[in-house]
Write a protein that binds this DNA or RNA. Sequence first.
DNA 1: GGCTCCCACGAAACAAAATTGCAAGCCGAC
DNA 2: GTCGGCTTGCAATTTTGTTTCGTGGGAGCC
Lengths: 160, 160
Amino acid sequence: MNKRVQHSPLDVFDRKILAILQRDNMTPQRTIGDAVNLSAPAVQRRIKRMREEGVIRADVSVVAPEAVGQSITIFVEVEVISETADQIERAKTEFAAAPEIQQCYYVTGEADFILVIVVPSMADYEALTRRLFFGNNNVKRFRTFVAMDRVKVGLGVPLE
Amino acid sequence: MNKRVQHSPLDVFDRKILAILQRDNMTPQRTIGDAVNLSAPAVQRRIKRMREEGVIRADVSVVAPEAVGQSITIFVEVEVISETADQIERAKTEFAAAPEIQQCYYVTGEADFILVIVVPSMADYEALTRRLFFGNNNVKRFRTFVAMDRVKVGLGVPLE
DNA sequence: GGCTCCCACGAAACAAAATTGCAAGCCGAC
DNA sequence: GTCGGCTTGCAATTTTGTTTCGTGGGAGCC
């Protein structure tokens, strides 16, 4: 269901390039080349390959939520009643479709789903719970955590 | 302590531009201009302003964790013993410094911190808990959730 | 060893995109 | 009305990304 693309093994150059790109993907290829001791075209070819292979999933700007009026970040642990394959699939689809849901993970443990939600106000969150949880009769219960501080927020993965 | 930059109010153009950029920041300005009915330089100036004002926090490549051998995503709820200001500050600093910790939020509710962690293997996670939690005598307890599926992962905020 | 084939590389040429300079249009203040 | 600040579009310039081409090193095979 997801993009399953062949990943040819990454060498040291690739990793160094990734380390730079996941911090700032606007870095000129020439600069990257200098940093990793490679020519700009070589860097360009590697980046292109990694994009095609799905090693680089996307290239995005990170927007400050509070700057656009989405000032509240909320965590939710969701526990479902029935964990049949298609019930789970349905839930995944529904969660993935909601724009307020930034992240959704299907997890083991005391909860089934963990959601990261971004909304303008508590009232909006309340409305969302009504729609998403109370309106879904497969949701057994959910626990809410409100973020007071987004201490560290990123998608960077440790490299080397 | 963090970036406190003045956010001048965003108009419809800005929001449309942001909506595009947070999906794909490699979109040519010309294309963006066409989409929002503005010239490329106008788009460029707005983007520059939003970068300077901190509305756009960063521009990054999103790397597929499994492609670089970081195949396990883990959630942790951390509860601390003492919640004095400097104990909390110390914890924030420590969590923010760990490269395996992708995200760290300070939250209300039954937990104090919620962490999103990315590691190559369970053994690595075990080692990390030893260092981070058992090695920190202010950690009362922590609950672990292992992600079976990263259903939706992004930092995009709802716009429009 | 000597051979070819195959990649990945760097240098340079090239294309495309971003950036800058500038003149004009659009308010709001006086 | 007119001044001044702000934003725009267009055109020129500069920077950046991309393609082309020729070279060199390594793997496999005579």
